[in-house]
Amino acid sequence: MEISPELAEELIQKGLDLAYTILPKLAYAAIFYFIGRWIVRKLVKSFSVLLEKRESNPSLNNFLIGVIKALLYVSLIIGIATILGVPLTSFVAVLGAAGLAIGLALQGSLSNFAGGVLILLFKPFKVDDVIIAQGHTGTVREIGIIYTRMTTFDNKEIIIPNGGLANSDVVNMSTQPTRRVDLTVGVAYGTNIKQARETILNIFKNDERVLQEPEPVVFLNNFGDSSLDLVIRAWTEAPNLWPVYFDSMEAINVAFAEQGIEIPFPQRVVHQAKA
């Protein structure tokens, strides 16, 4: 098929007109991109320095920086699309549809993500705190955006999704400077309760780790099947809780043996009826 000179001239003219229309837009878009990218980097860097000065949680800092960076680059892309003449409503509709599809596909991860944000913002616990959560007791080693890592006292690593962690009860055993030591000791029926109480209180009085205010107390709590149960309450600084607990149990056993106070074992008395 031969092209007439008039048609060729018309096509060339249309190509030139199109180039005159598109090339300036491409040039403006390229300039806008490079200047915008430079501004985004400066803003992100300034925000990073600001967060470092506030000494916030590193995980939270990384999350906030990532969100701000993503928002700034989305704004930059929208600006470039506007310069190129892409209808803004169509562009936003595409982004919305993509966001909805991603949200449906990752709804479980998004729940954990939201939980991680809440934990990092409201700080119900922090790294190195001892907590009870999701049926586990241990020391918090890392708080991430999706998961929180704990180490149990027998050195097992527990990885808990933040979604469930943020929506369940958490017992933080590290926020208060002092803790109460709770012990229960059984003595034989017929034991002089006053003597047993004085023996126990004397142990706590001579232990420098035990606080005397509030003062330790010993109460008769229960008439058991084989023993009179004494409940013991004493306060100590949080790091000393378990050392005081175990040392006190051993000291009570030694002191009771010296005082002749019997710690009974389970026993049952059987009366046989005569025929």
Rank of each mutant, 00 (worst) to 15 (best):
R41N: 14
K42A: 10
K42Y: 09
L43G: 04
K45T: 13
K45Q: 10
S46D: 07
S48D: 12
L50F: 12
L50P: 02
E52I: 10
E52K: 15
R54I: 08
R54L: 14
S56I: 14
N57R: 04
N57F: 03
S59V: 00
N61F: 00
N61S: 15
N62F: 01
N62T: 05
N62D: 12
L64A: 11
L64H: 01
I65V: 14
K69C: 03
K69N: 15
L71S: 07
Y73P: 00
Y73S: 03
Y73A: 00
Y73W: 06
V74K: 01
S75I: 10
I77K: 00
G79Q: 06
I80T: 10
I83H: 05
G85D: 12
G85A: 09
V86T: 10
L88K: 15
L88V: 15
T89H: 09
S90E: 12
F91V: 13
V94A: 10
L95I: 13
L95F: 11
G96K: 13
A97P: 03
A98Y: 05
G99F: 08
G99K: 07
G99V: 07
L100I: 14
A101L: 13
I102Q: 10
I102D: 06
I102T: 13
G103S: 13
L106T: 15
G108V: 12
G108D: 14
S109C: 01
L110C: 08
F113E: 09
F113Y: 15
F113V: 07
A114G: 03
G115M: 02
G115N: 05
G116D: 02
L118M: 08
L118T: 05
L121V: 13
F122H: 10
P124I: 01
F125H: 03
K126L: 02
K126W: 01
K126Y: 02
V127N: 11
V127M: 06
V127D: 08
V127H: 07
V127Y: 06
D128P: 03
D129Q: 03
D129A: 02
V130F: 07
I132M: 07
A133P: 05
Q134L: 12
G135Q: 06
T137C: 08
G138P: 06
G138I: 02
G138H: 06
V140W: 04
R141V: 12
R141I: 13
R141H: 10
E142L: 13
E142H: 15
I145N: 04
Y147Q: 14
T148D: 00
T148G: 01
R149Y: 14
R149W: 05
R149I: 15
M150G: 01
T151K: 13
T151R: 11
F153W: 09
F153T: 00
D154A: 04
D154G: 04
N155R: 12
E157R: 09
I158S: 05
G163K: 01
L165A: 04
N167A: 07
N167Y: 00
S168V: 01
S168K: 08
S168Y: 03
S168T: 11
S168N: 12
S168A: 07
V171K: 13
M173Y: 07
S174C: 02
S174Q: 08
